[in-house]
Computed example of a mutant assay.
Amino acid sequence: MFVEVVAPAPGSPPPRAARPPLGRRVVAGAQPYLYLAPALALLGVWTYRPLAQTVQLSFYSWNLLPSTPMTPVGLRNYQRLIDLPDLGQAAVRTVVVIVGLLPFSVVIPVLVGLVTRQVRDRARVVYQAMVFAPTLVAPVASAAVWQWLLDPGAGVVNKVLGTRLNWLHETGSAQFAIIVITGWSVLGFATLVVSAGLAGINGDYGEAAQLDGASRGQITRWITLPLLSPTLVFLVLMTVLLSAQWTFPLIDTLTQGGPARATTNVYYLLWDYSFHSYDAGLGAAAGVLLFAAFGLVAAGLVRLSERLSFHDD
């Protein structure tokens, strides 16, 4: 028995494959979203739902007591917040904290990463453990240790420097002390991030430049640092967005925003309005403004990083 196979006529379109059933196509298209569904659900419950509640609360006056009803006040909380001088002063202190932490999160990690780039084997493991150790210390525990180190009478810092400065209770030194303690805890994480960025740079570029007569400094300036720019932009972005959050547990433990509000940044001001003054509406309005301001800053930094970063394609 022979089966005759008819070839398609020249120039005719090829036969179309049979499409799978509609149900199968819907299941195949929805499969990626089903994998993402748990994460999206948790994101909505723990991030966007509280954010929406915060925006709603910013239009009410409430003292956090369940027996007291919330009173709608419109935009009055935002007007009060703008009229208060504390917001502008806290914003200035936040900028000071960001600028003060940049050496600990960017400059020093880059220097340490470049100097220790040739460390290998067990010595590298020991070095990374020593550098990263402060990051693992709980903020409250490190605050207790630093409070003892900075004691005006028996503190080790004053003994080494030969001073009797009350670091945490004088307006001129309290902010500096908070920045140094926070920088000490962030330094290890930033150094490891820089080390990972350096490890991802192809060494062939440096070797080729060295064959052409480039010095080690020229290789670092014109090859290593440009290729490290995405890592540096990431660290700068984290410092700008999270500095106030990093300092909060230390401020709450060591200074409570003092002395004379010298260490009160925007993050601690939000906490103060909500849980010290029991003005939940004003605190929520501060949180909304803080979220919007840092969102704009983050968008600007991301857009700027796309222009300044150099990627090895």
Results as ranks from 00 to 15, higher is better:
235 L>G: 09
69 P>F: 07
227 L>M: 11
121 D>R: 14
246 W>Y: 15
138 A>W: 06
63 N>W: 01
300 G>E: 00
76 R>D: 13
186 V>W: 15
178 I>C: 05
190 A>K: 05
136 L>C: 13
230 P>E: 10
176 F>I: 06
103 P>T: 14
211 L>R: 08
35 Y>R: 12
274 S>E: 04
236 V>Q: 02
18 A>M: 07
42 L>A: 08
310 F>D: 00
36 L>Y: 02
281 G>N: 07
172 G>K: 02
209 A>T: 04
151 D>W: 08
45 V>W: 13
58 S>A: 15
90 A>V: 10
231 T>C: 06
103 P>Y: 11
153 G>Y: 02
139 P>D: 02
157 V>A: 00
18 A>R: 15
24 R>N: 04
202 N>G: 07
156 V>C: 02
257 G>E: 09
159 K>F: 01
282 L>Q: 07
298 A>Y: 09
10 P>N: 01
226 P>V: 01
299 A>N: 12
43 L>Q: 09
156 V>E: 07
113 G>L: 10
293 A>K: 05
40 L>R: 03
118 Q>T: 14
198 L>H: 14
197 G>T: 00
128 Q>L: 05
188 G>R: 11
52 A>P: 02
297 V>C: 01
39 A>K: 07
302 V>R: 14
195 S>P: 00
272 D>R: 10
252 D>I: 08
232 L>P: 06
296 L>K: 03
82 I>K: 08
250 L>D: 05
195 S>E: 08
72 P>K: 12
57 L>D: 03
56 Q>N: 11
218 Q>G: 13
215 S>P: 02
8 P>L: 12
206 G>L: 06
135 T>H: 09
66 P>N: 14
203 G>C: 03
71 T>S: 09
49 R>H: 05
132 F>H: 09
282 L>T: 05
24 R>C: 03
180 V>I: 13
226 P>S: 11
94 T>C: 05
154 A>F: 15
59 F>S: 08
260 A>M: 05
200 G>P: 02
74 G>I: 10
87 L>C: 06
6 V>G: 00
49 R>M: 10
258 G>K: 09
191 T>Y: 09
269 L>A: 01
19 R>Q: 08
110 V>G: 09
39 A>S: 09
101 L>Y: 07
165 L>D: 10
73 V>W: 09
94 T>F: 01
67 S>Y: 04
305 S>G: 15
233 V>K: 10
82 I>C: 08
144 A>W: 02
238 M>P: 00
144 A>N: 14
282 L>M: 07
249 P>W: 13
87 L>V: 14
237 L>T: 06
166 N>P: 01
5 V>R: 14
26 V>N: 04
214 A>D: 04
294 F>R: 09
140 V>P: 04
216 R>N: 06
91 A>G: 12
78 Y>W: 15
192 L>V: 06
305 S>F: 02
135 T>L: 02
252 D>S: 09
129 A>C: 04
60 Y>Q: 13
